[in-house]
């Protein structure tokens, strides 16, 4: 029973990973931005599932809370606000389509070749770290980064307001 549960864990990681890849591929193909947003949200939720199965539950929770709950809701609002029917709806792809696909295929192909023929570091049994270890590392070693993050957020808010106000002055 224990072995089955462990295998189920691994199997679910594979299933969620493949599902995230499928959702990412759908993002390229789908036409309407709202459909693309839904595909991105499902990819993020699947990745959250992968994080939860890997044992980093707090990152899974924040993935769903911050990415899906904040960033993507903001994006969905912007899509609803900007329902502009223009040429980008009928013609999805720019003139770089062939070039881009060739580049992506080469990129992935080179990396797969590296996987297949490179030297692997021997895969160790994964070591789990808990919220406590993360929190102490976060606030002891990386406190400066944490503080700089708040500066970045304030700068982003000021920048957003400055963009809007500057456009009012010029327009």
């Amino acid at each position: 029973m224990e072995a089955l549960l462990q295998n189920l864990d691994t199997l679910l990681v594979y299933v969620f990973g493949v599902a995230a890849l499928v959702a990412g591929a759908l993002m390229i193909v789908l036409r309407h931005p709202m459909q693309v947003a839904m595909a991105l949200i499902s990819a993020m939720v699947f990745l959250g599932g992968v994080y939860g199965l890997l044992g980093v539950h707090f990152i899974a929770a924040f993935q769903v809370l911050i990415y899906v709950g904040a960033v993507m809701v903001f994006m969905v609002y912007a899509i609803m606000l900007l329902d502009v029917r223009d040429k980008s709806y009928t013609q999805r792809f720019s003139r770089f389509l062939v070039l881009g696909i060739a580049g992506a295929v080469i990129f992935v192909g080179v990396l797969v070749y590296g996987f297949a023929h490179g030297q692997h570091a021997s895969a160790r049994a994964s070591v789990s770290f808990g919220l406590q270890q993360f929190a102490s590392a976060f606030l002891n070693e990386y406190w400066l980064h944490f503080e700089l993050t708040s500066v970045l957020l304030v700068a982003a808010v000021v920048a957003a307001m400055a963009v809007i106000r500057g456009s009012k002055r010029h327009g």
């Binding site: 995230a20 991105l40 899509i79 900007l82 980008s88 999805r92 720019s94 992506a104």
Partner: peptide, 23 residues
Amino acid sequence: VALFALGLLGVIVRRNLLVMLMC
């Protein structure tokens, strides 16, 4: 890696600004 490549591909080939941001 594949997700990164798909996102990069989307930024290059799609013509909608919002879709590029999501990629």
